[in-house]
Design a protein around this nucleic acid. Structure first.
Length: 301
DNA sequence: AACATTTGACCATT
DNA sequence: AATGGTCAAATGTT
């Protein structure tokens, strides 16, 4: 979620035109909360799964994490939808006051997504329509790669005004199964030295449509559409993910997998994967950096 | 050899 | 023209 400032906070007596806009954004707190929940669950998963790696329940736990994340993704999508339609209406009003706001993206894009490689021109590159398609979920996390999915990196770009490049990943099963899910990982600029852990903005685009062969939860009685809607819950039996950006100390053990990053990515790994004393985490009301700090240093205590 | 990543080029969008 | 998403050849890794 993009941070969107909310007008002013100090009890203004009269709503101005910009306040009217902020009134249209009152889903933002809920969206922020959902995003925060996603971030925390992602981080929690990065802690729990490595600790469970030899445990027979790890797969179920992984799938439960995935389902939780998928549920919140759905919730987020609905909030975004609400937010958008509300804002569209609000913008119509605002237009009267402020013509600068004319621009409003149309959400009608999904018919043409990536398949626009044009029948007439099959080898041309896909159209970029991502900015118009909002089936995306973004979260901030210090553990951008350990999300229980398998990704293949297909690009990296320097982004304007960003210190670090953005990496582009697509689902490993894109070829085999035509899964269209992609994600981007952007290392945030951290101005604040070593105190705070590096944070990453991860944006997921599209739903996973790849099938899982042994998904426990896929046979839980949910119909296929729901299964699709929750990204198939197809956590792989060997939980793994790519780890190719610079040094993510807290990546999971990732047995057997070629998708593991280069050796230098796995620095500190041995320290990282010691089981944690989960009681030490106390209430799960930690901010990302706090949890990250525990991830980094907790096992040493 | 097979698979993954890197990287410059290409392309759509703004 | 600038920007950012994707492709694909080259290169690296297992």
């Amino acid at each position: 979620m993009k941070h969107q400032h909310h007008g002013s906070s100090m009890g203004l007596p009269q709503p101005s035109a910009s306040d009217r806009h902020s009134l249209a954004c009152d889903h933002q707190p809920a969206m922020k909360e959902v995003a925060r929940g996603q971030s925390l669950v992602t981080q929690l998963r990065a802690v729990v799964l490595p600790a469970l790696q030899a445990d027979e329940r790890s797969e179920i736990v992984a799938q439960m994490f995935q389902i939780i994340l998928d549920c919140s993704s759905k919730a987020m999508a609905e909030l975004q939808q609400l937010h958008r339609s509300r804002n569209a209406g609000a913008d119509d009003d605002v237009l009267v006051d402020d013509k600068k706001r004319v621009r409003r993206i149309s959400s009608d894009c999904c018919g043409s997504k990536e398949g626009v490689s044009t029948a007439s021109n099959p080898h041309h590159q896909r159209k970029r329509s991502r900015t118009l398609c909002d089936d995306s979920v973004s979260l901030e996390t210090p553990v951008p790669h350990y999300d229980g999915r398998q990704w293949r990196k297909y690009g990296q770009k320097h982004i304007n005004n960003a210190k670090h490049p953005r990496s582009y990943y697509r689902c490993t099963y894109r070829q085999e199964q035509g899964c269209k899910a992609t994600k981007t990982v952007q290392h945030q600029d951290d101005s604040s030295g070593a105190d705070h852990p590096s944070m990453y903005t991860v944006v997921y685009h599209g739903q996973h449509t790849c099938k899982d062969n042994d998904g426990v939860f896929n046979s839980s009685g949910a119909d296929e559409s729901e299964i699709n809607a929750r990204s198939n819950s197809d956590t792989q039996s060997s939980i793994s993910s790519t780890c190719t950006d610079t040094c993510y100390g807290q990546q999971a053990p990732l047995h057997d997998n070629k998708l593991i990053g280069k050796p230098e990515d796995l620095v500190m790994k041995n320290n990282m994967y010691e089981p944690f004393d989960m009681a030490a985490f106390g209430l799960l009301d930690l901010d990302s950096w706090e949890l990250d700090a525990l991830l980094r240093f907790g096992s040493a205590c």
